[in-house]
């Protein structure tokens, strides 16, 4: 996924560049040694309890019946889709402004996970909407803006792959990530600014949740489980990417003396 750059550093000792380049990644690898298993364990426990509770022990809704159980999937996916994109935008800023070495790598790994999460949000929404509203899909403001978010994720993934020089791909993707942040407030406020079929948010900062605790509790468990799961996936992918890059660098370093002596 990450194409290694093979540009030789003229006049610089390979050893120094190697150490300098992996100063931060090395720290991340040491962090991920305990963080990754911890996140996986947390996520597994919370999801196991939360999803079983949601599917089998939570009450049916008075108007939606059992279809309300889809909410326990749809709402966390929707929140994570927006949060993931916000993280992509932060990585974009870190990459463009501070030139943080890990920011590009993180953006490469977050994009596909975020895209899958957004696709799940749209899919579960369709499965929820058909029995409730009577339609698989409508072009109201909330659904359309989340679809736009999905295409932003796809565009981000595509931009990284599109260039021969990976640096240009990272930079274009960072620009897209920052520009697309506009969509996030649109998603959030679409149900209050315009008349939409999608109902307003049940859980906001301004009013009490319009949901009893018998539903709020399993929803919170699922939310924590999916959020830590997202973090676990991204941490693991980032760890794999750093290891892959390190292996690629070792191969390149080993091949160079052979080619120079030839």
């Amino acid at each position: 996924m990450t194409k290694a750059t093979h540009q030789p550093l003229s006049g610089r000792p390979a050893q120094g560049a190697f150490l300098h380049r992996f100063a931060n990644p090395g720290r991340f690898l040491r962090l991920s040694r305990w963080l990754f298993p911890a996140l996986c364990a947390f996520s597994g426990v919370f999801l196991a309890i939360g999803l079983v509770w949601a599917l089998l022990f939570s009450p049916a809704d008075w108007q939606q019946g059992d279809a309300v159980r889809i909410m326990y999937l749809h709402v966390p996916m929707a929140i994570l889709a927006s949060a993931g994109y916000a993280t992509l935008a932060v990585c974009g800023v870190l990459s463009l402004v501070w030139k943080h070495p890990l920011a590009d790598l993180a953006a490469v790994e977050i994009g596909p996970v975020g895209a899958v999460v957004t696709a799940l949000c749209l899919l579960t929404g369709a499965f929820w909407g058909k029995p409730m509203w009577g339609a698989w899909w409508v072009w109201d403001a909330r659904l359309t803006s989340v679809l736009v978010l999905f295409f932003l994720y796809l565009g981000h993934i595509a931009l990284i792959q599109a260039f021969d020089d990976p640096q240009r791909g990272y930079r274009a993707a960072a620009v897209l990530a920052i520009a697309g942040v506009i969509d996030l407030p649109i998603i959030k406020f679409s149900v209050t600014w315009w008349n939409t079929l999608h109902q307003p948010d049940s859980i906001t900062l301004t009013h009490a949740p319009t949901m009893p605790s018998s539903m709020l509790l399993p929803l919170s468990l699922c939310m924590i489980g999916f959020a830590t799961g997202f973090a676990a996936l991204v941490t693991g992918r980032l760890k794999a990417a750093i290891i892959e890059t390190r292996a690629q660098q070792m191969l390149t370093r080993r091949a160079r003396p052979l080619s120079e002596s030839a």
Partner: peptide, 10 residues
């Protein structure tokens, strides 16, 4: 199309 609001109740 039926529209439901944001309130949930067992």
């Amino acid at each position: 199309l039926a529209k439901h609001d944001e309130t949930y109740m067992p």
